[in-house]
């Protein structure tokens, strides 16, 4: 923890020093960015847009993770389904995010549903592939044990299957969050009239790097808080039996 704080402090110091040396509107100092952040917070704009973006992130994250887990596990277990969907998943994985977003907006309109769908579809294939890999590593010996004791389906899923998949689900969640918030910003930039992505587009047009960095920094702080407050405790809890 101490090392991490030290590294973070060093990075911020380097930033501040570089900005003071450069004296350019295009590289505002840390202090200027923090001041802008504070001003935007007091006006309410920062928190509102942050909340809107986070809401989109969470909805898309939840849908893509649960759907991706279900499809991925099913594909890992049933060879027929794997063969049927494999090409589609690979295509979706390699389709550029931008193409998918533009097509969905064109076909379904510039709506909230379309925005969420575009983000979800971008994240879905990598979750499917991660969980398919996980489902393939499930221990057949433990499945046989559960079968021999006639464990009810739900009990076996919760106590036998899901704990084996926990590392894969956590990997998908962590990389998912990172990917999703990047794509949410693009979706907002292209077709929504609020959210961090939309704000950044405005400040890009104004060449206001200070505000761009203010919004980015605010978002990075929130994402780091999620990592510390949710993902890492969850990981420790799921992996406590390992030593």
């Amino acid at each position: 923890m101490a090392t991490r704080l030290l590294v973070a402090a060093a990075l911020l110091l380097i930033w501040q020093a570089a900005a003071m040396l450069a004296q350019s509107r295009l590289l505002p100092s840390l202090l200027a960015v923090l001041q802008a952040m504070w001003a935007e917070t007091r006006s309410g704009a920062l928190l509102l847009n942050l909340a809107i973006t986070m809401a989109r992130v969470l909805v898309a994250f939840t849908i893509s993770l649960s759907l991706g887990c279900a499809i991925g596990i099913a594909m890992g277990r049933w060879r027929g389904l794997d063969l049927a969907l494999d090409t589609l998943v690979t295509m979706l994985l390699n389709l550029p995010a931008l193409v998918l977003i533009v097509l969905i907006y064109v076909w379904f309109g510039l709506t909230e549903t379309a925005a969420i769908a575009a983000v979800t579809l971008n994240k879905l294939p990598s979750t499917i592939i991660t969980l398919r890999e996980g489902a393939r590593t499930l221990d057949p010996n433990l499945a046989e044990m559960a079968q021999s004791f006639a464990m009810p389906r739900l009990r076996a899923l919760r106590h036998v299957v899901l704990p084996q998949l926990a590392p894969y689900i956590l990997t998908a969640a962590r990389s998912g969050l990172a990917l999703i918030w990047k794509i949410v910003l693009v979706v907002e930039l292209l077709g929504r009239s609020n959210g961090i992505g939309f704000q950044i587009q405005i400040y890009f047009q104004l060449f206001d790097v200070t505000l761009i960095l203010a919004y980015t920094l605010a978002f990075l702080i929130v994402v780091q808080l999620i990592e510390w407050a949710a993902l890492q405790p969850l990981e420790r809890w799921a992996m406590q039996w390992r030593r």
Binding site: M145, M151, V160
Partner: peptide, 21 residues
Amino acid sequence: MVFQEPRLLAWRSVRQNILLA
């Protein structure tokens, strides 16, 4: 059933392993 290998759930306590069966 007692298998050749113990086949316990490594992520559940000893007691839980028995209760779950």
